Computed example of a mutant assay.
Amino acid sequence: MDDKRTCRLIRSSRTYLGKQGFNYAEAISKESVGSQGICMHLLTIPPGKRAKAHLHQDHETAIYVLQGKCAMWYGDKLEEHMELKEGDFLYIPAGMPHLPYNPSDVESCTSIITRTDPNEQESVLLLPELDAIYEKKQS
């Protein structure tokens, strides 16, 4: 990474597999542009797919749904639920357990995701015990 301070254009051509189980389109991060306080990525959730339950320690998340619908279980035991549609904004406070998924069997959901952690994955803490709770909800 060049240490010279300047504006950087990113044409997202690289994806990476996140700990949460989704492929993210690389955009703004410490790794891509040397950002110090934010990261931003594009995420498309395929029909019927879900993330692994997780939280972002010490970092807030803001999401904007560009296309489709998605849903999310959240809370200490994933006891809360919400559905989002195209044009919705979502705020997730630091340390909030959540499990996003795409409830559609046919349409993908695409969102812009921004966090106050400049690193692509460092603040992701997987919560496998909550995945088990989610599986029970689905059966």
Rank of each mutant, 00 (worst) to 15 (best):
residue 130 L to N: 06
residue 126 L to Q: 01
residue 124 V to T: 01
residue 77 K to R: 14
residue 98 H to L: 04
residue 115 R to W: 05
residue 135 E to Q: 14
residue 71 A to V: 08
residue 93 P to G: 07
residue 123 S to I: 05
residue 76 D to T: 04
residue 62 A to P: 00
residue 61 T to P: 01
residue 39 C to F: 07
residue 108 S to E: 11
residue 118 P to Q: 11
residue 34 G to P: 03
residue 125 L to K: 14
residue 36 Q to R: 15
residue 9 L to C: 03
residue 44 T to F: 04
residue 58 D to C: 05
residue 80 E to M: 09
residue 42 L to D: 12
residue 109 C to K: 02
residue 8 R to Y: 08
residue 86 E to P: 02
residue 126 L to P: 01
residue 37 G to M: 02
residue 31 E to K: 08
residue 51 A to F: 02
residue 120 E to G: 06
residue 87 G to R: 13
residue 53 A to R: 02
residue 71 A to P: 04
residue 30 K to Q: 10
residue 17 L to Y: 05
residue 139 S to M: 13
residue 38 I to N: 04
residue 133 I to P: 10
residue 15 T to Q: 11
residue 53 A to K: 01
residue 130 L to T: 03
residue 72 M to Y: 05
residue 72 M to V: 12
residue 74 Y to T: 07
residue 66 L to E: 08
residue 81 H to A: 08
residue 111 S to L: 13
residue 20 Q to H: 07
residue 15 T to R: 09
residue 109 C to Y: 03
residue 136 K to G: 02
residue 83 E to P: 05
residue 52 K to M: 03
residue 39 C to M: 14
residue 69 K to Q: 14
residue 89 F to A: 14
residue 128 P to C: 02
residue 131 D to K: 00
residue 32 S to V: 05
residue 124 V to G: 00
residue 117 D to M: 09
residue 10 I to A: 06
residue 90 L to S: 08
residue 97 P to L: 01
residue 6 T to K: 11
residue 114 T to N: 05
residue 45 I to E: 04
residue 117 D to A: 13
residue 57 Q to E: 15
residue 63 I to T: 08
residue 137 K to G: 04
residue 85 K to L: 05
residue 36 Q to P: 02
residue 40 M to A: 12
residue 45 I to T: 13
residue 139 S to Q: 15
residue 116 T to E: 01
residue 71 A to N: 03
residue 20 Q to D: 12
residue 95 G to H: 13
residue 113 I to N: 15
residue 82 M to R: 14
residue 91 Y to K: 05
residue 32 S to W: 00
residue 60 E to R: 07
residue 9 L to S: 03
residue 76 D to E: 15
residue 36 Q to Y: 09
residue 70 C to L: 15
residue 105 D to Q: 07
residue 18 G to F: 08
residue 103 P to R: 01
residue 53 A to M: 05
residue 82 M to V: 13
residue 69 K to H: 11
residue 79 E to V: 03
residue 117 D to N: 15
residue 80 E to S: 10
residue 108 S to L: 04
residue 130 L to A: 02
residue 3 D to R: 14
residue 57 Q to M: 10
residue 113 I to Y: 12
residue 9 L to N: 01
residue 27 A to M: 12
residue 127 L to I: 02
residue 37 G to T: 08
residue 132 A to N: 05
residue 82 M to W: 09
residue 119 N to M: 07
residue 104 S to C: 09
residue 45 I to S: 06
residue 88 D to N: 10
residue 15 T to C: 08
residue 107 E to K: 09
residue 104 S to E: 05
residue 65 V to R: 07
residue 107 E to F: 03
residue 118 P to Y: 11
residue 136 K to E: 15
residue 124 V to N: 00
residue 57 Q to H: 15
residue 7 C to A: 15
residue 58 D to M: 04
residue 1 M to Y: 03
residue 122 E to F: 10
residue 102 N to T: 03
residue 24 Y to S: 00
residue 46 P to H: 06
residue 55 L to K: 09
residue 109 C to D: 06
residue 92 I to Q: 07
residue 57 Q to F: 12
residue 137 K to M: 12
residue 82 M to S: 13
residue 10 I to Q: 03
residue 100 P to T: 06
residue 44 T to Y: 04
residue 29 S to T: 07
residue 34 G to M: 07
residue 108 S to N: 10
residue 97 P to I: 00
residue 134 Y to S: 10
residue 5 R to I: 09
residue 36 Q to V: 10
residue 118 P to S: 12
